[in-house]
Amino acid sequence: MLSRAAESIYWMSRYLERAENVARFIEVNCHLMLDLPVEAKGQWEPLVLTTGDQHLFYENYATDNQANVIDFLTFSPVNPNSILSCLQNARENARSIREIISTEMWEQINKFYLQVQNIDKPQAQDAPHTYFTDIIMASHLFTGIQRNTMSHNEAWQFAQLGRALERADKTSRILDVKYFFLLPEGDDVGTLYDNIQWSALLKSTTALEMYRKQFGPIEPHNVINFLILNREFPRAIRYCLFEANQSLHTISGTPEGSFQNPSEQVLGRLLAELDYTSIDEIITRGLHEYLDAFQTRLNQIDNAVFETFFTISPSTSTA
């Protein structure tokens, strides 16, 4: 397929996934605030930290209260990672590959964008649950449509690749930020308050129920284990990379367990490391340090995918 089209569908997918994750962060946080003691209600800044756009936020808003954070993360045109900006980008990418994706996909992405663009902002602020659940469902609808109306061909694999890498990124970021904010309060460890926080973290990745099936009670060590190393949960980092790796090998035809291009090499190596890492090693090393290094590796994968598939110049001609 065209390199430009491959890049567009990859980014279309990443942006949609990003929008969905932001919506979930907000939705879960709104719930969390209802359960927290009054003095702890200021916890909106971590959401901005999760997206890594804190500088941009403070340039545009005076305080990190709920209304400002929701506005910044949902509607702000200056924030390239706001839900609206993500959908706009996803839609522009989709528009440039209208002939690659199915009409049903295009219509859904288009409706999705119009839905968010037409949201009554004050109402969304007052009743966030409805609005953000709708956004999450619109995203699920899109992935379902994509799975069922488009051939699982090369383009589809690029979409899967983009989504899987974006998911791994988002899970690692939210884990990093939440962990940073959760741990220092030594007195709270093991308290109800602590439990609520860890549950919220799991909910932000829709992992609470699946976590309980596997581990039962909330236990930070197990939560981290679940979100990083689980092989069956679709938002666990290990699972995401496994999926990404499969898509990559389906695209290239290279047998799994070997590599023929830099993207397969860096992704395969990271996946193998995860396969042979224990949660104790991660904790001993320090979760933040571990996740920081992980982020760097993810960026390398993204760069390698770009170099391998999206840029080709006549000097490498095989024609």
């Binding site: 397929m1 065209l2 390199s3 430009r4 491959a6 090369e154 690029f158 695209i251 598939f309 999206f310 080709i312 006549p314 490498t316 001609s317 095989t318 024609a319």
Partner: peptide, 20 residues
């Protein structure tokens, strides 16, 4: 920008190299 003329023929840049 997806197209290029090489060796007198027109090709498009694809994920697997140039296609005529």
């Amino acid at each position: 920008r997806d197209l290029v003329v090489t060796d007198g023929t027109v090709a498009m840049r694809t994920t697997r190299g140039f296609q005529r």
